[in-house]
Design a protein around this nucleic acid. Sequence first.
DNA 1: TTATCAAATGAGAACCGATGTCAAGACATG
DNA 2: CATGTCTTGACATCGGTTCTCATTTGATAA
Lengths: 143, 143
Amino acid sequence: MSSPQNQFLEYLAKNKMAATEQRRIVLEVFLGTQGHHSCEELYAHVSKRDSSISPATVYRTIKLIAESGIAESLDFGDGITRFECRHDREHHDHLVCIRCNRRIEVMEDRIEELQEKLACKHEFEVHRHKMILYGICPDCRKQ
Amino acid sequence: MSSPQNQFLEYLAKNKMAATEQRRIVLEVFLGTQGHHSCEELYAHVSKRDSSISPATVYRTIKLIAESGIAESLDFGDGITRFECRHDREHHDHLVCIRCNRRIEVMEDRIEELQEKLACKHEFEVHRHKMILYGICPDCRKQ
DNA sequence: TTATCAAATGAGAACCGATGTCAAGACATG
DNA sequence: CATGTCTTGACATCGGTTCTCATTTGATAA
């Protein structure tokens, strides 16, 4: 599999979109982060690298990065869309602590299988899914 | 189990909140609906019964109804919060068609069990969860 | 009942993440 | 290079939801 940079360039070329300096910078900054980040956070990081890049461009570009398959958008239900890197990573779901907001990534193949079966039973063709378990994390339970 | 009306009144009393005419009407209207409804839709129905009730009151009241355990808030990721009746109903998850927006309710005990186990493994105390499968429904697949 | 006061309401402003608009500037192709 | 389209930055706008605050209402005590 090619590097995320090349994957993005290929996506842009395929859709006849320009490989601008701003898009390169936003992608680099995004790849340099870990975990789940909002556009606002991403914009803060991008600004450090090039303060002339506008928030709108960050919003526009991260969407492209998601469409190209490099990022995945996440919705934890607090009204903020976050993005995480998908490149060379397994699919996973999330546990979210409703006290401290900590988010843990989890994976359970048997759940994925059952989801597929469930959809099949209803003749649904699943494109993606979202599973979030909200609760209290170990640290907060001790308090 | 008491009626939802009484359950709501008990909830209000316990929290030293007034049982106003507006709250009674919003609850009645909500109980008279089926499926998943946004505050805007609910407000439209409420208005027919009493046009002097404001949107803000509907927003405020449906939140109380959810906190009292009678309603559950749903987030399908389109920026609109919807509510469905929880009173005397089993928990269920949703299949959402990304073409026609049709939403199907589904239930799979084994997934619920696995979710519980998964949380347990991470010492998480789960309060609620959200599982939505996005895809194409049977009708849209035929087209 | 009536008086009292905290709580709830209606109206409309404010909020905020996100998107739209548009003139100016940058990129790819010939 | 020159051309024409795409992209950008700046800023306005959007839409669901929440906030503010003066007015009204409900719950409690007298």
